[in-house]
Design a protein around this nucleic acid. Structure first.
Length: 333
DNA sequence: CTAGGGTTAG
């Protein structure tokens, strides 16, 4: 049993289900014996409660699946059993705190990470920067960031996103500028090899908020230079950034030049027209979406189209959409 | 077994 790893994703999935079902019965490691379902058997068979890797898998899987509460429960359970966490344990646990906007747990987990000596771990730092900024403690995030001697693109992006989420897109762009400046001085890798699509998306979302055409074009230029301008997520955000600058035609240009479009691409383009009172264009894009987008629209699509209807006074179309929403509600019931 | 991102509207 000792050292036994979780064998494959299916079993891991079953383990997390098992954990969810039986979490209330396990107050101690040995309490499982009273329950006797297949899942419990599986859980006990494969889950070595003395093994930190097993705990990490469970905490990570729960965090990935959006069960942040359970993820934190697993973390605290593990701590109660006095299992020593390792460097992989903390990022997931901290991520769960951010997802819950749970500053108290976040601070406690931060303290524990310090106790176990992970204060200079980049994965831990990134997760902490994200956690503090999501919990509204941007100054804490900034202090952490400033203390990191060797930053990577993830730590930079965490801080940039932190400023955007705290309504300071301008400062977010200043941080990106600082990043470019550091790279130009030859600190670490070059911009082209260190920046990635997630960073570009984050910076472009800051551009969307400051609504400045020149800035957006500048960042677009950086994306082109580093070869990330044809990444779908980057194109989606770029499209939005241009629109928020009032550059609807530039926005459309990005949209038309996309090699592939996903639901977010279509929704973004529809939203651009809806927000600018161009309802006819919004409906036209929606038709294109039904024809070329695989018909996979979602609640954001419907919400955006309703906005266009309100603009147009298109009552009949609005009522059809209302029916669609009703049908969806019934189907998901 | 580990960290950061994009569409609505309120």
């Amino acid at each position: 049993m000792k050292g036994m790893k979780i064998p494959n994703p299916i079993s891991l999935h079953l383990l997390t289900i098992s954990f969810k079902i039986h979490k209330n019965h396990f107050s101690t490691a040995a309490a499982a014996a009273s329950t006797n379902t297949n899942l419990t058997t599986l859980f006990n068979k494969y889950f070595d409660k003395t093994d930190v890797y097993s705990w990490n898998s469970l905490i990570a899987e729960l965090a990935r699946g959006g069960d942040s509460c359970e993820s934190l429960r697993a973390f605290s359970w593990m701590r109660k059993l006095d299992i020593k966490p390792n460097r992989s344990t903390f990022p997931c646990a901290i991520k769960s705190c951010s997802a819950l906007f749970d500053l108290n747990s976040g601070e406690q987990t931060h303290q524990q990470a310090l106790v176990f000596g992970f204060e200079s771990d980049l994965f831990v730092s990134s997760a902490l920067i994200d956690m503090y900024s999501k919990c509204g403690k941007l100054s804490n995030a900034r202090v952490l960031f400033d203390e990191i001697p060797q930053r990577n693109i993830v730590t930079w992006t965490s801080l940039i996103t932190g400023y955007v989420k705290n309504d300071d897109a301008h400062e977010a762009l200043m941080v990106f500028k600082e990043f470019l400046f550091e790279k130009s001085k030859g600190n670490g890798e070059e911009v082209g090899t260190s920046v990635d699509s997630v960073a570009m998306v984050s910076v472009l979302s800051a551009c969307a908020r400051v609504s400045n055409k020149a800035v957006s074009e500048g960042v677009h230029g950086v994306a082109i230079k580093v070869g990330l301008d044809k990444v779908m997520g980057v194109e989606n955000t770029l499209l939005d950034a241009y629109a928020k600058c009032g550059e609807v035609s530039l926005s459309r240009k990005v949209f038309d030049e996309m090699a592939e479009k996903d639901v977010v691409s279509w929704n973004s383009m529809i939203a651009v027209y809806a927000q600018n009172g161009l309802s006819t264009d919004a409906f036209e894009v929606f038709h294109g979406m039904l024809k070329n987008g695989g018909g996979k629209y979602n609640e954001v699509t419907l919400s955006t189209l309703l906005q266009a209807c309100a603009h147009e006074g298109a009552l009949r179309v609005g009522m059809c959409l209302h029916d669609q929403v009703t049908i969806r509600v019934l189907l998901s019931y």
